[in-house]
Design a protein around this nucleic acid. Structure first.
Length: 451
DNA sequence: AGCTGGCAAACA
DNA sequence: TGTTTG
DNA sequence: ACAGCT
């Protein structure tokens, strides 16, 4: 089988995975996603099916699909089924998931027209999602991401000089070395393997040319200076007309390390903002670097620049032949992290759902650790005395029992943090197409072939 | 044969 | 509380 | 109703 067939197989498996997810068959969904990821991670084209022997996550069903070169009747039937099409369409609305879509379908709603006419109650996110349906289902280019980044950067620097803005998510290039370091750290082998990455699997190499949203991570080199930053940034963006929708959520992680008894530990740390961003199309400076001298840019300058009359003068597109809108809507996520958690935030916001799931599963199962976008916890060494403050973990399924009991946690030890700092360092430069693939035979692949 | 499959936080 | 989000 | 592990 050649490369083209390979990608056909991936698409086919992706369809089956998506269909399973839309039908709330989570296990099947993840199984097909893994199979897809294994194919995607192959270092070269596969000529014979026998070459797939020994690869993990390719079971009977997935192999059937592959043997049919992705043209299995099952896949075609799925693609053409009215239910699949309707589920895909409806869940394409921001704020609508499989459950809601299923409910609507049983109400006879199969498309947007029927949705509008039969008018079930929509929550705020869904209203915004419906309103910007077209735009939000349009891929976001890297250029658009960078443009948004410039706008956000100005605002952030205005609110907090010295703050750092990092493009994360699918657009960012992550290196295998970064995840390698995480393994090493978990294995208490910090110094050893990270100097020798040879022969180890390529782990996560994104740097996609397009995406479905844009994610930014904001921090400040001085710990604590980032507190309270996000609400200011958001309100400034809002006042400048950049936000069509916004939901800011705060982090329950309470700073327990340096000043345990501070009432300031109760300080709200707004951590994430899910927004719909109003991005001007064809910014006058199309392909030119917007500012070759960004030093001089002050906040007020950018305000007047961005917020000029043209913006408000745009015609709210009514169906009949109107010239294309002067702007488009883009999903933008802002994440604020204290510098001490920066590395974890980077790893936690790769934008790859499968990667996050598999990484955390691996941490928990193989390492008895709990990984979040804030820290890495050793679930074994939970001396009660070393915990204080924050009751973070809501009890429930999926929460590690030891954590559930304590309901308290704190980063395990300082050394972990300092080691993980090197993760952050390594996450920087592009690793390019230096993709190696080596399977430790017959060992489950865990998370590293994901994408 | 039976179990697991990643998480936490917000809204209605 | 169930559903959705990244 | 998929795949791997126990």
């Amino acid at each position: 089988m050649n490369l083209i067939w390979g990608s056909l197989c991936q698409e086919a498996l992706s369809i089956l995975a998506e269909n399973a997810e839309l039908n709330e068959e989570d296990g099947r969904g993840i199984a097909f996603r893994r199979a897809e990821a294994v194919l995607k991670a192959l270092p070269r084209a596969v000529r014979k099916l026998t070459e797939l022997k020994g690869l993990p996550c390719l079971g009977e069903h997935s192999l059937r699909i592959i043997k049919a070169s992705g043209k299995a009747a099952e896949v075609e039937a799925t693609k053409q089924s009215e239910r699949y099409k309707a589920l895909k369409l409806l869940t394409g609305i921001f704020g609508v998931g499989a459950k809601t879509a299923d409910r609507w379908i049983t109400m006879g709603i199969y498309n947007l027209q029927q949705l509008q006419s039969s008018g079930p109650t929509l929550n705020q996110a869904q209203q915004a999602g419906l309103e910007h349906y077209e735009d939000l289902n349009q891929p976001v280019t890297r250029a658009e991401a960078d443009h948004i980044g410039e706008i956000v950067r100005r605002v952030v620097l205005c609110v907090l000089p010295g703050a750092q803005l990092t493009l994360i998510g699918g657009f960012r290039r992550y290196t295998s070395r970064a995840a390698l370091d995480l393994i090493n750290i978990a294995d208490h082998l910090t110094a050893k393997i990270c100097t020798d990455a040879d022969g180890i699997v390529d782990i996560l190499n994104r740097g996609k040319p397009t995406g479905h949203d844009v994610d930014f991570l904001i921090t400040h080199p001085e710990e604590g200076r980032e507190v309270g930053l996000l609400p200011k940034v958001v309100s400034l963006l809002k006042s400048q007309g950049f936000l069509l929708y916004q939901k800011t959520t705060k982090n329950s992680y309470l700073e327990s390390e340096d000043r345990p008894t501070q009432p300031s530990s109760n300080m709200d740390r707004f951590e994430r903002c899910f927004s719909i961003f109003r991005l001007k199309r064809n910014p006058g400076t199309t392909l030119v670097k917007p500012d070759t001298s960004p030093r001089s840019s002050s906040c007020t300058q950018s305000q007047s620049e961005r917020h000029s009359h043209q913006e408000s003068a745009e015609v709210r597109g009514n169906g009949s032949e109107s010239r294309p809108k002067s702007w488009r809507a883009v999903r933008v996520d802002l994440v604020v992290s204290p510098i001490s958690q920066f590395a974890f935030a980077l790893l936690g916001w790769t934008g790859s759902k499968l990667f996050e799931r598999e990484l955390r599963r691996w941490a928990g199962h193989e390492k008895a650790m709990s990984l979040s976008s804030h820290a890495l916890y050793d679930t074994k060494q939970l001396p009660e005395s070393s915990f204080r403050g924050g009751d973070i973990c809501s009890p429930g399924p999926g929460v590690h029992p030891s954590i559930r009991e304590k309901r308290l946690k704190r980063p395990a030890e300082r050394p972990w943090d300092t080691q993980l700092w090197r993760v952050a360092d390594h996450l920087g430069p592009a690793f390019g197409s230096d993709c190696r693939y080596s399977l430790e035979s017959n060992r489950q692949i865990h998370w590293f072939v994901t994408y």
